[in-house]
Simulated assay, not measured.
Amino acid sequence: MRIAFVGKGGSGKTTLSALFSRHLARSGAPVLAVDGDINQHLAEALGGEEESAPPLGAHLPEIKDYLRGDNPRIPSPEAMIKTTPPGRGSRLLRPLGDDELHARHVGRAGGVPFMATGEFDESDLGVACYHSKLGAVELYLGHLLDGPGEYVVVDMTAGADAFASGLFARFDLTFLVAEPTRKGVSVYRQYRDHAEQFGIRIAVVGNKVTGEDDLLFLKEQVGDDLLTHLVHSPWIRAAEQGRAGSGPEALASLEPHNRHALEVMREAVDAEVRDWERLHRHAVEFHLRNVHAWADARTGEDLAAQVDPEFVPGPAARS
């Protein structure tokens, strides 16, 4: 299952992405944490020693070449854009599978398998868009055949920036982390309005809640979209200062209410039923939008022809 964490900058979405990933890993579930934020702090939030691996965004041409495989509709990596959907002949991936992409780009942080998009560095200033780096994550998810009990957790860019690409439509569930403030819920309204157009489910997770007034405020502002909340946490503060121990097992000392909130979140994810048809329909739709907006003109090719009408994503595509 694919889970996105979004929210206003400073809401705690990276912290909760890390906590949720560690919670899953502690249970023994296969989980991959992906840092898709322009501020690359997820590895640090996961805690412990980091075994780094090359970032995805720095190797986008090689990733494209690998994923296109023998798909005759994609003659070269240059003809492949971030929204290009898979088709017959494409290389399809299993989460943390025994393949070239995972072998090269998966490291570990705090005992959790981890991939990074890569920093927006000085050479990018004024000439590049961070969403071009996110294209590697979009292609990865587009070619991924994950199933129930397998988790890919992506820490997304802050605010509503995630809507600048079709990446926001590639998840089974999006957790929107909101503080109990007017600014904290403003991003929720933006996300809700955009997501409703595509049938994308949002679950709000309140964060930094200090009492009943905070909780009542969130309930009034987001209604039934409020799934659960985390209370102010000395353990999280200690973890951010490097004093709470490393590895998934350190979560045993997290406050009981906050551990329960993480379990509520997992139950919500596990209750989702993968809609392969919806995921593929959105992938094709956003690909065609990009094709008509800029990609055909930039590449000089008819990229709408990359859509394979006979390809059906899902478990059947594994054979």
Rank of each mutant, 00 (worst) to 15 (best):
A4G: 15
S17I: 02
F20P: 02
L24K: 10
G28I: 02
V31K: 04
D35I: 08
H41M: 05
A45E: 01
A45I: 09
L46P: 00
G47E: 06
G48R: 14
E51Y: 09
P55Y: 12
H59R: 13
L60Y: 04
I63H: 11
I63P: 04
I63V: 15
D65R: 13
R68N: 06
P72T: 13
P75G: 08
P75S: 12
M80R: 06
M80L: 04
K82F: 14
P85A: 02
P85W: 00
R88N: 11
P95S: 01
E100Y: 13
H105I: 00
R108T: 08
A109E: 03
G111S: 07
M115D: 05
A116R: 04
A116S: 15
A116I: 09
A116E: 06
T117S: 11
F120Y: 11
F120S: 08
A128K: 10
A128I: 09
C129L: 01
K133D: 13
K133W: 03
G135T: 06
G135Y: 03
E138A: 15
L139H: 07
L141T: 10
G147E: 08
V154I: 14
A158M: 10
G159M: 07
A160D: 00
A160L: 13
D161R: 06
A162P: 09
A162T: 11
A162N: 14
F163Q: 07
F163R: 01
A164D: 12
L167S: 00
A169Y: 08
D172Q: 12
V177I: 15
V177S: 07
V177Q: 14
A178P: 06
P180I: 00
T181E: 00
Y188W: 11
Y188I: 04
Y188E: 01
H194V: 15
A195F: 04
A195N: 09
Q197Y: 02
I202L: 15
I202S: 07
I202W: 04
V204G: 12
G206K: 10
K208W: 07
E212A: 11
D214M: 12
L216Q: 14
F217H: 00
F217T: 01
K219W: 08
V222F: 03
D225E: 09
T228E: 08
W235P: 00
R237G: 14
E240H: 02
E240K: 08
Q241D: 15
R243G: 03
R243P: 14
R243V: 05
G247V: 14
A250K: 01
S253H: 13
L254C: 08
R259K: 07
E267P: 10
A268E: 04
V269Q: 05
V273P: 10
R274D: 01
L279W: 01
R281G: 14
H282Y: 06
L288F: 12
V291Q: 03
H292Y: 13
H292R: 09
A293Q: 10
W294F: 15
A295D: 09
D296C: 11
A297C: 02
R298Y: 13
E301L: 14
D302V: 05
L303F: 08
A305Q: 06
A305T: 01
V307I: 03
P309W: 10
V312W: 03
P313S: 02
P315G: 11
A316V: 11
A317R: 00
R318Y: 11
R318M: 12
